[in-house]
Design a protein around this nucleic acid. Structure first.
Length: 467
RNA sequence: GUCCCCAUCGUCUAGCCUGGUCCAGGACACCGGCCUUUCAAGCCGGCAACGGGGGUUCGAAUCCCCCUGGGGACGCCA
């Protein structure tokens, strides 16, 4: 049984990179009909914040990456870590180190200056156990890393990776205040939670051998690892705050659909032939770790946007209509779900790239005091077009239903003949009169959706506004 | 500095494992055309890449080595 996990630390929002790691874990476990575990790594009390936990949980839920177990909080498991540390101490696999943080920092700097590895010099490693000179002094627990030999593992995306033990440091497992550190908790938890596959960012490759030796010391089975490349910003550097490595939820707020974001994230670093569009079910069916690329990819907003328009156009219309509601609300339009709304989105979804944009584009369908574009007014609501609008308003009186496209079309053709003009010359003034813009869905659709009363009112207002 | 990882169009990628069908395929973006009632959408077409150098081989994007470039890690952060 495959058991994967996503283990973020709540020291920041769930950004694009984290979301993709979560997605890959989710897809891998679902593909193998396994279990997806969520664990919050909040051992850094200083920087962990509840609001980040909320953001992470909210982001995952929005994407629909539902976890089967958890969330587990490491904060609640400190006793477990302490027990394991004691066990290692009893077995002589960890030792007390009395070096202060300041001394360590100086040693690191000195080593770096001389061109060496900034590693701990192992001063306390061979201190006699009964040495009384450190009695009562604060200490940390360090792992007694093997001094020679090598550690290797078969990475599911990169193949075999080997490290020499000399490269490994004697990691601190328990701090002075006896709180556990990352490399220790992650091993204990993954082992205890029965995690079989660890899918994480490749910034953890260096931690992997250090963790493997801890697994071995603890006599726990070593899981499989898969290190996926990081997502970079346009400058090819790791995604950070300045690239908009902001919360995933901002994409929701900006009107992106979770289907599009999931599809985009999956294709970032992974491919299945030439296919671009994948539903969640297809992703679960087709996703596999060996197909994940090895090189970092750059986040491309344009492609995400393209996918978003694709889903806007292809998802069920009633679904899109319902999802538009909160965005309408956002700009002060309290609409409800009905046939008219569906009709509006059917016309707008070919043109809008996001739900947010769609809401803005739909404003004039909902209120008479909608924005009117000055340039559009200046160009199309003029003394020259006034008679056209007047004639058209007059024509309308003879038509019972604005859904009667045939009749409307006939009147329009009449006007093109009368004014000896192209259709566009007749239609644009009407479009501006009705929508306040030069751009809108087909004019007959606009007229039909607005309804007779509204169309007459707006034509009248437009005509009166022309000096 | 040391270690680890990576390297195909501007971007996401297919192809690489199992060399020839690749003068390298798809997608986004961009450019042009068609359609047209505006804007989109759609359809058609175009531009555009195997980082460099050595090998191996009849033949290399594909295998090997070196170089270069990029990224990551080196915390009592995760």
């Amino acid at each position: 049984m495959v058991r994967s996990r996503f283990a973020p630390s709540p020291t920041g929002n769930l950004h694009i990179g984290g979301a993709r790691t979560a997605l890959f874990n989710y897809l891998y476990s679902k593909h193998h009909r396994g279990v997806f575990v969520l664990r919050i790594e909040d051992t850094d009390i200083e920087r962990s914040r509840d609001e980040y936990v909320d953001d992470i949980l909210g982001g995952l839920s929005w994407l629909g990456l539902d976890w089967d177990e958890g969330p587990y909080y490491q904060k609640d498991r400190t006793e477990l870590y302490r027990e394991h540390a004691e066990r290692l101490l009893k077995e002589g696999l960890v030792y007390r180190c009395y070096c202060s943080a300041e001394v360590l920092e100086e040693k690191r700097k000195a080593a770096l200056k001389e061109g060496g590895k900034p590693h701990y010099d192992r001063t306390c490693r061979d201190l006699p156990a009964d040495d009384p000179s450190h009695e009562g002094k604060p200490y940390v627990l360090r792992f007694r890393t093997p001094l020679s030999g090598e550690v290797s593992f078969a990475d599911l995306v990169r193949g075999k990776i080997t490290f020499k033990c000399e490269e490994l440091d004697d990691l601190i497992l328990l701090r002075t205040d006896s709180s556990p550190t990352y490399n220790f908790t992650v091993v204990v938890d993954d082992a205890l939670m029965g995690i079989t596959h660890i899918v994480r960012g490749d910034d953890h490759i260096n931690n992997t051998p250090r963790q493997i030796v801890i697994y071995e010391a603890l006599k726990y089975p070593v899981p499989q690892f898969a290190h996926v490349p990081l997502i970079h910003g346009k400058d090819k550097a790791r995604l950070s705050k300045r690239h908009g490595a902001t919360s995933l939820l901002e994409y929701r707020n900006d009107g992106f659909l979770p289907e599009a974001v999931m599809n985009y994230l999956a294709r970032l670093g992974w491919a299945h032939g030439d296919q671009e569009i994948f539903s969640r079910e297809e992703l679960i069916e087709k996703f596999d770790l060996p197909a994940v690329g090895k090189s970092p990819s750059i986040f491309d907003m344009e492609k995400l946007t393209w996918l978003n328009s694709h889903y806007l156009k292809t998802l069920p219309e009633d679904d899109i209509a319902k999802r538009l509601l909160p965005f309408l609300d956002e700009i002060g339009i309290s609409a409800g779900y009905d046939a008219r709304l569906v009709r509006i989105i059917v016309n707008l979804r070919e043109r809008a790239k996001t739900l947010k944009e769609m809401a803005q584009m739909s404003e004039y369908f909902f209120r008479d005091d909608h924005a009117v574009d000055d340039a559009a007014r200046a160009k199309f609501l003029t003394p020259a077009t006034k008679p056209i609008l007047t004639d058209f308003a007059e024509d309308l009186k003879g038509i019972a239903s604005m859904d009667d496209e045939e009749s409307l079309k006939a009147r329009l053709e009449g006007l093109t003949k009368k004014y000896n003009a192209k259709p566009v010359a007749i239609i644009q003034p009407i479009r501006v009169a009705l929508s306040g813009k030069t751009v809108s869905p087909g004019i007959f659709e606009v007229i039909a959706i607005l309804g007779k009363e509204c169309v007459e009112r707006r034509l009248k207002d437009a005509i009166e506004s022309i000096q």
